[in-house]
């Protein structure tokens, strides 16, 4: 047992099988940011799944992250539901980002009602994407949303405070948006190891 065996020899004799990384199918939902697409294993948002965006505070670039996706979806005629947004989407900025306001539906709700509304929107399959703001949501609520997103084949985005990063989550993708320095970290991504290096938000435009 003490003999040192060269790995190459073993591989040549085909006694050790070397697994190759299987390539993930490319996502049909690119994020619109080339740098971010390159980081994600499927090259875009996980389709029909929940993505979590954990942000440090209002105004650190959490909307800019999604605007290209929303612009693409609304332009193709899909409806986007915003469930319990914390503030008012200011039309000039959203239009400047290319979002078609006619396809936007705002749903005012609070607490558990917001969760219910988001789940209904996801399950119905009549929306292209559902964005919801959940200041307090537990593991079970997120799992419900994840299942609803799968059932309705809809993109789901949950905005949560950065403090929730410590807790585990059933979301397929977890992104953390830091304000200072302005950067984006991938905490978890289904189908690959999360890249260690953060991505500068300045590059996202």
């Amino acid at each position: 047992m003490g003999a040192v065996v060269a790995l190459d020899a073993l591989l040549d004799q085909r006694r050790v099988w070397k697994g190759r990384p299987t390539s993930q199918p490319a996502s049909a939902q690119p994020t619109g940011h080339a740098a971010l697409d390159a980081l994600l294993p499927t090259g875009g948002w996980p389709a029909a799944a929940l993505s979590e965006i954990l942000y440090a505070a209002d105004g650190c670039g959490e909307l800019r992250l999604l605007w290209p996706t929303l612009a693409r979806l609304t332009a193709s005629g899909e409806r986007v539901a915003l469930v319990a947004p914390p503030h008012l989407p200011y039309p000039p900025a959203w239009q400047a980002a290319g979002v078609d306001l006619r396809r936007l539906a705002l749903i005012a709700a609070s607490g558990r009602e917001a969760l219910w509304a988001a789940e209904q929107c996801l399950r119905s399959g009549s929306c292209g994407a559902v964005l919801c703001w959940l200041p307090q949501a537990d593991d079970r609520a997120l799992r419900r949303l994840q299942v609803a997103a799968e059932t309705g084949q809809t993109l789901a985005f949950a905005y949560r405070p950065l403090t929730a990063a410590r807790n585990p989550s059933p979301a397929a993708l977890r992104l953390a948006v830091d304000a200072c320095p302005a950067q984006l970290r991938v905490l978890k991504c289904r189908g690959g190891l999360p890249p260690a290096a953060p991505l500068s938000l300045a590059g996202l435009g």
């Binding site: 409806r79 989407p89 039309p91 959203w94 306001l101 006619r102 936007l104 539906a105 705002l106 749903i107 005012a108 709700a109 009602e113 219910w116 509304a117 209904q120 929107c121 399950r123 119905s124 399959g125 009549s126 929306c127 059932t151 309705g152 084949q153």
Partner: peptide
Amino acid sequence: RPQQALPWEQLRERLRARLGDDAVHGLC
């Protein structure tokens, strides 16, 4: 679309019925 699909109009009615008439609106 999957089985439990609900058209947007019905979904909007369902949301309005529970959350209130003004809860669902567009933006212009």
